[in-house]
């Protein structure tokens, strides 16, 4: 995990008051004292203390939105739990990461998600469900779910909002955290909220430029490459047999690193490493989807 002081240092918004130059912050995580750079988050502090904190809507290359609340921890003196991902570490904080309250809220959040959203392709979440003893079945049968059909509107990626946990990551990636295209946003309110284009027009009619940055950040596979979707549908998606090869995009001179995910000697998807100084994980349509020529297509 990149600590947030490193993120600050690489940020284009670096200012004269570079927080990494300030005195470090001292706090206790599960009774262990830790020291982190000024400006670091509670999540960073947990990581520094060697504690694994579950996250869902957080990503190192996006602004925290505090929406999923799976990362909540107990902060002595606060009435409610606090989100570790977005709360700044403060001097003297006393944090509990595995208290009864923390485990309970995490369990409930997992039950809520698992009872309403198709998490079958959200691997880390699925294992958290058992780790926290979440039992989505206890809500009975008459439960509202996302209840969305798969949208196949082009050859590049599919949108399956049955699997969407509304983490806002795709919206941020499409918006001012990366792409600045703003093709998608959250529409509707409450449980009816959905990721949508204006008037829900199909992607080819929207502002979408097919950079696939939304696909790259989606934690649940609600957004996936059509290649992956087709292989899964055919029962031929075999991640264990896939290899990853790092290369540099051949289209232009920017120099984006690409990770080619290959199965049966065929590229099945392309990502870029989040810690790459040029891309922070984000690409354009050419690097993301323009690999057909490798296979003579």
């Amino acid at each position: 995990m990149t600590s947030s002081s490193e993120r600050t240092a690489t940020s284009s918004e670096r200012t004269a008051t570079d927080t990494s130059l300030e005195t470090p912050v001292r706090l206790s995580i599960d009774e262990v004292d830790v020291e982190v750079a000024a400006g670091a988050s509670v999540l960073d502090a947990c990581t520094a203390a060697g504690i694994d904190t579950p996250t869902l809507c957080f990503a190192e290359n996006l602004t925290p939105v505090n929406a999923c609340r799976i990362c909540v921890v107990e902060h002595e003196g606060s009435r409610t739990l606090i989100p570790a991902c977005s709360r700044r570490a403060e001097d003297g904080m006393a944090i509990q990461t595995d208290s009864e309250r923390v485990r309970h809220s995490r369990k409930m959040i997992l039950e809520f998600l698992a009872s309403g959203v198709d998490l079958s392709q959200a691997d880390p979440l699925a294992s958290l469900v058992s780790e926290y003893g979440a039992d989505p079945a206890r809500y009975g049968d008459a439960v509202a779910t996302m209840d969305e059909d798969v949208r196949i509107e082009d050859d590049l990626y599919v949108r399956d909002y049955d699997k969407c946990v509304l983490c806002y990551k795709c919206v941020e990636a499409c918006g001012d955290d990366a792409q600045h295209t703003f093709a998608i946003a959250v529409a509707g309110r409450g449980f009816d909220a959905r990721i949508s284009t204006e008037f829900d027009v199909e992607l080819p009619d929207s502002a979408c430029v097919y950079c696939g940055n939304c696909v790259a950040v989606c934690p649940t596979n609600a957004l996936q490459f059509t290649t992956e979707f087709d292989l899964r549908t055919a029962g031929e998606w075999r991640p264990d047999e896939q290899t990853t090869t790092r290369t540099v995009c051949s289209y232009c001179g920017v120099g984006c690193n690409l990770d080619l995910h290959v199965q049966d000697e065929t590229i099945v998807k392309v990502t870029s490493p989040n810690d790459h100084s040029v891309t922070s994980g984000h690409l354009c349509i050419k690097g993301r989807f323009g690999w057909g020529y490798v296979h003579g297509r």
Binding site: C68, F112, A144, G190, F191
Partner: peptide, 14 residues
């Protein structure tokens, strides 16, 4: 519910 956070977005429905 505004629908932003999971505990309230889904909790109020349940």
């Amino acid at each position: 519910s505004c629908g932003q956070c999971v505990p309230c977005r889904i909790g109020t429905v349940r």
